[in-house]
């Protein structure tokens, strides 16, 4: 399957349901998706079409024109999507995008320089060795 940037990876409820429907091999035409998902949600075919267009614009779907209608299919497998979404999630963390609501055991956005780290490791090792020598 084709690969490309997936943004934003967080899907809305209907978007996730549509992706799940397509990953399970469901028909990729808007009317068929509406029959499968739309009736119990009380939404129109237009809403499903908008959702498909949005997912297409997010590069999550590919489409072919068959007769007068677009038929959609996933660009990525569920596993590929989850792997990439997780990668983007970790990337967001490492760039401090969640700092307001997340605290990390060791700061994620700044790294200790190698000399600093080696000096501290030596100090701690020396202190541990001294502690072991004591009865």
């Amino acid at each position: 399957m084709a690969s490309g940037p997936i943004r934003p990876p967080l899907l809305g409820t209907l978007e996730a349901a549509v992706m799940e429907h397509l990953w399970r091999g469901g028909d990729g035409e808007a009317k068929a998706i509406h029959s499968a998902l739309g009736a119990r949600r009380g939404i129109t075919v237009n809403t499903v079409q908008s959702t498909l267009k949005r997912l297409f614009e997010k590069d999550l779907l590919e489409r072919d024109k068959v007769s007068h209608a677009h038929v959609y299919r996933p660009r990525l497998s569920r596993e590929e999507f989850q792997h990439r979404a997780l990668g983007e999630l970790v990337g967001a963390l490492m760039h401090g995008e969640a700092d307001a609501m997340v605290s990390a055991f060791v700061e994620l956005t700044e790294r200790a320089g190698p000399e600093h780290l080696a000096r501290l490791e030596a100090l701690v090792a020396e202190r541990r060795a001294r502690a072991k020598e004591r009865p």
Partner: peptide
């Protein structure tokens, strides 16, 4: 606790491509 802080800092330095903009002051670790 000090040993674990340094261990996690060391682990965070290992994966290539994961490190953010390089900083040599080490945040709060020292």
């Amino acid at each position: 606790v000090a040993e674990v802080i340094l261990k996690v800092e060391r682990l965070l330095q290992m994966p290539a491509g994961l490190a953010p903009a390089a900083a040599s002051f080490g945040g709060d670790v020292p």
